[in-house]
């Protein structure tokens, strides 16, 4: 391996590592989400309960599949939402803060209602 080869290779690796950032979001904190809470209605397609972060995939009639970030595993468990609390196909209403990026179908839930049953993920944050 020569210096002539390794320099472009290194540049490529760096550039590649930096481009990943374009689709970035964070489930930590609320800065990436809108301040005003909104409601989303749909049908649960996928449920993931566990570390590092519990999430749902919810299909809405209006614009398809959304990712719903729940609270961290402990907080989600404390809200009473566990394995068996919901199944794919269940109707769900989510109150939460959606991503400020309009093209991103991502919401951080503060309260979810599955088939009429409420789960308060962040009771202190509920605005309405």
């Amino acid at each position: 391996m020569t210096a002539r080869f390794s320099r472009p290779a290194a540049a490529f690796v760096l550039a590649a590592a930096l481009t990943i950032g374009t689709a970035a979001y964070a489930h930590h904190g609320w800065e990436w989400a809108e301040e005003t809470q909104t409601t989303l209605e749909g049908t649960i397609r996928e449920i993931y309960i566990g570390p590092p972060h519990p999430t749902l995939k919810v299909e809405t009639a209006k614009d398809g599949l959304w990712q719903i970030d729940l609270a961290n595993p402990s907080q989600t468990a404390r809200a009473g939402f566990a394995e068996g609390s919901a199944r794919p196909g269940h109707k769900i209403v989510i109150l939460g803060n959606r991503s400020t990026q309009k093209d991103q179908k991502l919401m951080k839930a503060v309260k979810i209602t599955v088939e009429g049953k409420d789960f308060l993920l962040y009771p202190e944050r509920i605005q309405k």
């Binding site: 391996m1 020569t2 210096a3 080869f5 390794s6 320099r7 290779a9 290194a10 690796v13 760096l14």
Partner: peptide
Amino acid sequence: VSAKAQAALSLT
């Protein structure tokens, strides 16, 4: 030089 280049590549 080639060993140094590989070291630089490794760091990167």
